[in-house]
Amino acid sequence: MTTRLRLDTGRRPDGTPVLTAAGEIDMSNAGEFTAAVAGAVPASGRLVVDLTAVEYLDSAGLITLFTHAERIHLVAPALLGPVLTVSGLTELTTVDIA
């Protein structure tokens, strides 16, 4: 049994690609998340990773975000704020706290 996670890709009206995740991200499903991010990162410009509906994120998911830090734009809920801050991710990429 793996942790509940839904991933959807789409585009904003301005054409920016968006990856929307909902659920929890831990070591059991981090591979899935990594694949989704890697697949969605555009050749140029940034990928918006929308974590608004993510209730849990730990280092297994953070590693993916770190890997693509320069190519993504994060949208995260307040709940994930501390984790993103203490991990240092907020210093490498743009994070919008929803």
């Binding site: 049994m1 793996t2 942790t3 831990d26 070591m27 059991s28 704020g81 501390p82």
Partner: peptide
């Protein structure tokens, strides 16, 4: 690793009983 979500669920519930601030 498949057990993590379940464990987390139990802990989340217990932390709520402890009346911890959400963050």
């Amino acid at each position: 690793s498949g057990r993590l979500a379940q464990v987390r669920g139990a802990l989340r519930e217990w932390l709520a009983r402890c009346d911890l601030p959400p963050r």
